[in-house]
């Protein structure tokens, strides 16, 4: 096969990838465009741009309370999931113990499980236990799915952790707690960081679990869904854009913070 054939193949792959990327971003772009119309109904090409709906949405008390609920759930889920996931990941990848292989597969099951069915099963379960559905039950529901994901994300980091570091610290006179604080925790920090980022974003955007387990409390994705089904209002694309932008800010902020953190650590050395 000749060289030109080779590069033609590469060009085709590049073009295909660009097309898929466009496919991936088209709906978000559409939402963004739709959010900037002045008219009550979406009509493309847009004739009049306007940001009235943006100010309306920002000033809406209902939206604020929704955002507050979503944020509370995401923050609480993140905090708990990171602790569970950290120890879960140590059990997953760091220690060798009887039953570990079984445990590893068990942890994966909730990830490989339809979320809507999990949501409904939890709805039934909470009802059977006599719980009143609220944002607190939603936290539990999110955790069942997110804690295993965080465990897995952290486990990848833990795999590259050299256990002899802990042994060296102990050998140098550190107690078990000191070893944990001075060696294990800082070395695994990047994993903890990306794990918490995952937890926050997955909880913030979750729809199928929230749909069935929040009860009277409403989250942003759930509210948006109700509005979508009820008929078009320009508030939907606006709120969709805001919610997406918030997630993007967290993601890039987190990424930057991580970059700075590793740079500082390198500079300190």
């Amino acid at each position: 096969m000749s060289d030109s054939n080779y590069s033609v193949r590469h060009i085709l792959i590049g073009v295909w990838t660009a097309a898929v990327l466009m496919f991936v971003f088209l709906p978000s772009a559409t939402i963004l465009i739709a959010s900037m119309t002045a008219s009550r109904y979406f009509q493309f090409p847009i004739t009049a741009f306007g940001f009235d709906w943006w100010s309306k949405t920002f000033n809406s008390l209902e939206v604020r309370s929704l955002a507050y609920t979503s944020l509370s759930i995401a923050v609480v889920v993140t905090l708990i999931a990171v602790v569970l996931g950290f120890f879960g990941a140590l059990a997953f990848a760091r220690y060798d113990w009887r039953g570990r292989k079984l445990y590893q597969k068990f942890i994966l099951l909730p990830i490989f499980f339809p979320q809507s069915v999990l949501g409904l099963a939890l709805l039934l379960w909470f009802n059977a236990l006599g719980f009143t559905l609220s944002w607190k039950t939603a936290v539990l529901a999110h955790l069942v799915w997110i804690a295993p994901v965080v465990t897995l994300v952290m486990a990848i980091q833990v795999y590259s952790f050299d256990p002899s570091l802990e042994e060296a610290a102990t050998d140098l006179g550190a107690s078990r707690w000191q070893t944990f604080r001075e060696v294990t925790l800082p070395v695994l920090m990047p994993g903890i960081f990306s794990g918490s980022l995952f937890a926050f974003l997955l909880s913030w955007g979750n729809f199928p679990l929230s749909l069935f387990t929040t009860g009277a409390d409403n989250t942003l994705p759930k509210y948006l869904y109700a509005k979508m089904v009820a008929g078009y209002t320009p508030g939907v694309p606006v709120l969709g854009t805001i919610s997406t932008a918030a997630a993007a800010i967290v993601l890039f902020g987190g990424y930057l913070a991580m970059l700075l953190l590793t740079r500082n650590r390198k500079a300190a050395l």
Partner: peptide, 25 residues
Amino acid sequence: LFTIPLIVSENIRLYGWVLFFIKGG
């Protein structure tokens, strides 16, 4: 770039397609 859509709630993205394909979209 491929990861970013994951942080957007799936129903928002699907709604984007509705606005993309709907009459007058």
